[in-house]
Design a protein around this nucleic acid. Sequence first.
DNA 1: CTCGTTGGCTATTGTCATTAGCCTTATCGC
DNA 2: GCGATAAGGCTAATGACAATAGCCAACGAG
Lengths: 189, 189
Amino acid sequence: MPRAGLSTAKVTRAAAEVADEDGWDKLSLAAVATRCGVKMPSLYKHIDSLDALRLEVSALALSELAAEVTTAVLGRSGSQALHAMADAYRGYALAHPGRYAATVTAPTGVHPGQQEAALHVLRVVEATLAGYGLTGDDAIDAARSLRAALHGFVHLETNHAFGLPADIDRSYRRLVAGIDTAMSTWAAA
Amino acid sequence: MPRAGLSTAKVTRAAAEVADEDGWDKLSLAAVATRCGVKMPSLYKHIDSLDALRLEVSALALSELAAEVTTAVLGRSGSQALHAMADAYRGYALAHPGRYAATVTAPTGVHPGQQEAALHVLRVVEATLAGYGLTGDDAIDAARSLRAALHGFVHLETNHAFGLPADIDRSYRRLVAGIDTAMSTWAAA
DNA sequence: CTCGTTGGCTATTGTCATTAGCCTTATCGC
DNA sequence: GCGATAAGGCTAATGACAATAGCCAACGAG
């Protein structure tokens, strides 16, 4: 029996691909094993369990997402940075729906890389909000609101929950414009 | 063997309770059967499959949610209606996290009651937006944005995705206030 | 009361996650 | 090279769960 030359990283990548194609909730070791050209039990030499693998995928996705939004905001600030970050965020979610779902719905458990990547994303958001002069509690509320709005939109979109066929790109642009308005006058509340 | 006196509606209610307690993704026929005091195969006299049951739960949840937001906006308009609806929306999601997840992540398939209940919710949202003078494409974009923001917030909250322990109620109030601001100046974009 | 329908049940199959234990292939000390 | 050791594949077995088939008791209409 020739060896497949697997590793935790390769199995995680295969799992991310399965999640993108079949859906995050349909991720199974059977599908991952097939994709790796290996029998199911062989995966256990590289991962601890399905839940542990999900956590790995979550960490991978968060670090990819962090890289995308970081690149997007480089050299921009204020409204420009907000739009660039929002586009990068949605772009990643649409290109990798399974991975994106993993960034939010991860199994409970601590994974060092995952925590760090999540903080990386948070830092980019905070830096963007600093361009609106938001600090302290205002920044926390604004960061949560921004994340909620972007996440809610792409989550509904990737779940095909927008009934009408009306232009979704335009709706997203209007949402981000609305966020821009709200952030600009945040302190007033 | 005495009869349990089940029905599709009773099984659906039991499934909704399981979803609220164990999580929407952990919903299983085994748990529903136990809760109904019955063996697993007996459920098939009342439902077609696990996916069909999920669709039933989704329809139930959407009709309950529609009733809540309808009651909330009765006799109010504009900013008042927006805040009342937003509170009812989040209140339902926190009280029934499993059912709430079902309103968004339902299996593909058509269910008459589900479609109607979803339209009912949409009508309430549209009526609220009418108080801001939004119609046509503006109303579509605004409705999607409003839904995205509210859904994103409660989805993150029910998934314990807000890292910091800072006051979540306050963050939600600020989010809704931000939406109010954005809706008030929507036409300008 | 009886007969047909309804709603329970047991038994069976297939899929998947997980564990145990085997056996071959790399790899490293000599 | 060469042999010990670890690492990475495998088959086999177990247990949970969805789904189907077919049995049999309980109810309701006449």
